[in-house]
Amino acid sequence: MEPRYEFGGDEHIFVEVSEDMSLEAFFISLSVANAVRESKIKGVTEICPANASFQIKFDPDQIKPNDLLAELKSLESAAEKAEPVLKTRIVEIPVYYQDPWTHETLMRFRERHQDPNGTDIDYAARINGFSSVDEFIQAHSGAPWFVSMVGFVAGLPFMYQMVDRPRQIEVPKYLRPRTDTPKLTVGYGGSFACIYSVRGAGGYQMFGITPMPIYDPKQEISYLRDFMVFFNPGDIVKFKPIGRDEYDADVEAVEANRFEPLIKEVTFSLDEFNTDVDAYNAKILETLHAN
C-alpha cells in the first residue's frame, strides 16, 4: 500500500492509506495514528484514525506544514515495518434485532428506501444472498467487528466485520437520508456497521437497537463516568442477539445504573488472524466468555 498525503487547508494533513477498505489498511492507519500520538510532535492538536486513512490537525504557527509532512512519512515507514499486533479489549453489545422502534422509523421513511415494500433487514438479507433474516442475523452477530473509526457525531462507532472479503456484508445507504433515527440504532452502510450514539438524521440501514448507552455527556452512567464516550478506535465488538424480555431487563438495569457491559482485555495479531480467520475469532470469543 502506497499512502497518499494531502494537505487539508493550512491546518490538516490527510493520509489515505488505501482507497479500499481492508483490515490491513485499517491496521496501518491506526498504528501510524498511535505512533504520532506517542511521538508528541509539537503543534499537533488532533490525531484522528479512520477506516483506511487518518488525519492530523496542527498549528502551522508552531510547525511548518512541510516539516510535519516529513515527520509523518518517517513514522509511517516505521509503523509499516512493525509487527501488526494490537492490545485492546473485546466488548459484548446486546442487540434487539427487528425491534419496534427502528421498525416504526423505517416505515415512516419508506419512500426514501431502495425497497419500499420490505424492511431494511429483509432487503439487506436478500441482496447479500442469505436465505432468511435469521441466517443474516447469525452472520451479523456471529463474527466479531473492529471499531475502525469513532465519529460523524459524538461517540458513534463505525465497525468493520472480522471476516474475509467474500463474507463482508454490503448494503447501500438510503436513497435520501432520513431526518430521524432512534438513539442506539444498530445501522449499516457500505461495508460498515454503526451504532447511532444520539438521535438524529441518518442514511444507514436500520437492523435493530441496543439497550446499552454509548455516549453520556452528563457522565452519570456507571461505565461512562470516567469518560463520556464509550468506544475507541481499535475496540473489538461482538453483537449478542436478544429478545424483547432481555431488552427490557437491560433497559431497566441501565436506568437503575447497575448495567455492566461485558468487557475483556485481548491482544490481536493480524498475522495470526489471517492464517485462520474462523479459528482466531473463536479463540477471541472464548476470551470474552471465559470467567
Binding site: H12, M21, N51, S53, P172
Partner: peptide
C-alpha cells in the same frame, strides 16, 4: 468503486473530514 466506498461516484471509504473541507 473501491471496496467499502459505495457506488455513487462522490463516495469514498468513510474518512475524517478537515474543518473547512
Amino acid at each position: 468503486p473501491p471496496f467499502g466506498a459505495g457506488s455513487d461516484p462522490s463516495n469514498i471509504t468513510d474518512a475524517c473530514y478537515p474543518y473547512g473541507s
